[in-house]
Design a binder for these strands. Sequence first.
DNA 1: GTAAATTTTAAACAGTTGTTTTATTTATGA
DNA 2: TCATAAATAAAACAACTGTTTAAAATTTAC
Lengths: 213, 213
Amino acid sequence: MSKAVGKKDTKQKILEAAEVLFAERGFNDTSLRLITSAADVNLASVNYHFGSKKELIKAVMDRYLAIFMPRADAALRQLLTEPAINLHQVFDCFVAPLMELTVIKRRGPEIFLQLLGRGYIDNQGFLRWFIVNHYGEVLEHFIQAIHQAAPELSSADVFWRLHFTLGTVVFTMASSDALRDIAKADFDEDIDVEGLVRKVIPYLASGVGANPC
Amino acid sequence: MSKAVGKKDTKQKILEAAEVLFAERGFNDTSLRLITSAADVNLASVNYHFGSKKELIKAVMDRYLAIFMPRADAALRQLLTEPAINLHQVFDCFVAPLMELTVIKRRGPEIFLQLLGRGYIDNQGFLRWFIVNHYGEVLEHFIQAIHQAAPELSSADVFWRLHFTLGTVVFTMASSDALRDIAKADFDEDIDVEGLVRKVIPYLASGVGANPC
DNA sequence: GTAAATTTTAAACAGTTGTTTTATTTATGA
DNA sequence: TCATAAATAAAACAACTGTTTAAAATTTAC
């Protein structure tokens, strides 16, 4: 143990700068030079510590996934043991794990959701593959919980509405800063991320539970 | 009138190639060289005919917006004259105008929605500004119709749920090709774009109309 | 048919990208 | 303390970006 407590090492500084820029601007539109100058480290240190930009992206994502996924999974497993559940409860399983991402940094929850959206859109699939391969069982428990809460839905309907839901959340969070500014200006409504999450859940629960026609 | 009927001119060839690539890969990740080689025209012809890449993006978008927006507006105006309306009817206003985009090309509806999503995410605002400034009244009629169909919602609630809705649609359509492939493989469900749109509308209507809590 | 305007072409421009190389500095362990 | 390893630094790399230039080809107009 040789590191001084207050002094972040280079690897950490890169991660901290990269995740903010990736969330704000997307992966492809964030250059390594932008990251390294924001982190106040040398350009070459990214390739030295992470190997490549692709690996840096994975490292940034996994720092959040590794905390969020097991906790979401635990909440879903817990819910699945109960006799009768509803969709609102299913979505509520994600709130606490999401808000606990403040352990990484204060704006952790929003950054994580923004990164998730970027990963879904920017790179055609490589991050999606990574998530499904590493955390696939969480998704399965999610689907299982929806089936239990809304047994009238076919598997295909659940599949589609799961993706509708993902779209709603990810898209909203990707532009949450701008939207919250507008809401503040136009309606004098000042809400934080948790407030926004709690605003979207009734929408999601009602949408997923809608009568298919 | 000197153009041979079967022979597309350069400007048209660029538009046709660009819109597909923009929809698939986003604006920033589609280079002019990729477009011009797909269109089989010279690199410099983009700057010659459109002035810049930014103007090309606007031209691509406006080709669809100019057809879609007036028709959607007409449908909303028509609906607003009726005494009692529901949310399902509000969203139905967009289906026919969307499907009519096949006049541009067969896959016009999906391409348009994908472009819309790209414009929302890729460029931080310049396309959004363009749309709001040119077609703002359509958005106002949309909001008015929602207010009429769900008068219990506050203006702020309508604002948020409108953006949830936009997220759902745009995100779903941005990856609709991949999702439909999965649905075909996993559930043997073979649907076209109109089928997908009709699938998402109950979700949206139920979500927007949910009891706010 | 010829001159003028329009369009196409190839080449070069200046700037950015991720990555690698080489040299220098700093830290480690005996 | 000194050799060794690890980390940092500056510079160059090849590939790519949007745009411009200047020459060639084509079309238009009289």
